[in-house]
Simulated assay, not measured.
Amino acid sequence: MQHNDAQPQSDPNANEIIRVRSNTDPTLLAGAVAKRIRLTGTAHLRAIGAAAISQAVKGITIANDYLVEEDMPIAYTSSFQDLIVAGEERTALNFMVFQLTK
């Protein structure tokens, strides 16, 4: 007789920031966000530039569509962060995505 003790698998990257680029596929991003939400209840994203920010918002919105079906709606807050990238000062938009409580 087999025992099926299915346990949620931990993600070693669960606390890492998901870096969003202008060419990030929003549906793949949504899957990554949904996975983090299921595992930890939060996901952190960072985007630099208008196109990357657009992809991040699309990905979060699609992830919400996935998670609402599982009765796990999400929301996010955003904040600016000044960074040095390749010797240039850039401003990133950070997104903190979290599961809404009932």
Results as ranks from 00 to 15, higher is better:
70 E>P: 02
4 N>Y: 06
46 R>T: 12
79 S>G: 12
74 I>D: 04
5 D>N: 10
89 E>R: 15
46 R>V: 09
62 I>W: 03
23 N>F: 15
36 R>N: 09
102 K>V: 08
42 T>L: 07
3 H>F: 11
58 K>G: 02
12 P>C: 00
58 K>M: 14
50 A>V: 13
32 A>Q: 13
44 H>W: 14
41 G>L: 13
91 T>I: 11
99 Q>P: 01
15 N>H: 07
97 V>R: 07
67 L>H: 08
11 D>C: 06
77 T>V: 15
90 R>Q: 14
3 H>C: 03
72 M>P: 00
77 T>F: 12
71 D>G: 02
22 S>C: 05
47 A>I: 05
43 A>V: 04
16 E>H: 14
23 N>W: 08
31 G>D: 11
44 H>Y: 14
82 D>A: 15
101 T>K: 06
61 T>L: 02
65 D>Y: 08
66 Y>R: 12
102 K>W: 12
60 I>S: 04
2 Q>T: 14
98 F>L: 00
43 A>R: 05
19 R>T: 11
4 N>L: 11
53 I>E: 12
63 A>W: 09
41 G>D: 05
53 I>W: 02
43 A>F: 10
62 I>P: 01
51 A>Y: 14
88 E>Y: 15
37 I>L: 07
82 D>Y: 15
78 S>N: 11
22 S>D: 12
2 Q>G: 06
21 R>M: 13
4 N>R: 11
42 T>Q: 14
40 T>Q: 14
16 E>C: 02
64 N>C: 02
28 L>P: 02
88 E>H: 12
11 D>G: 00
14 A>S: 09
70 E>N: 05
85 V>K: 10
30 A>S: 02
15 N>M: 09
101 T>M: 08
15 N>K: 11
88 E>S: 15
36 R>H: 06
53 I>S: 08
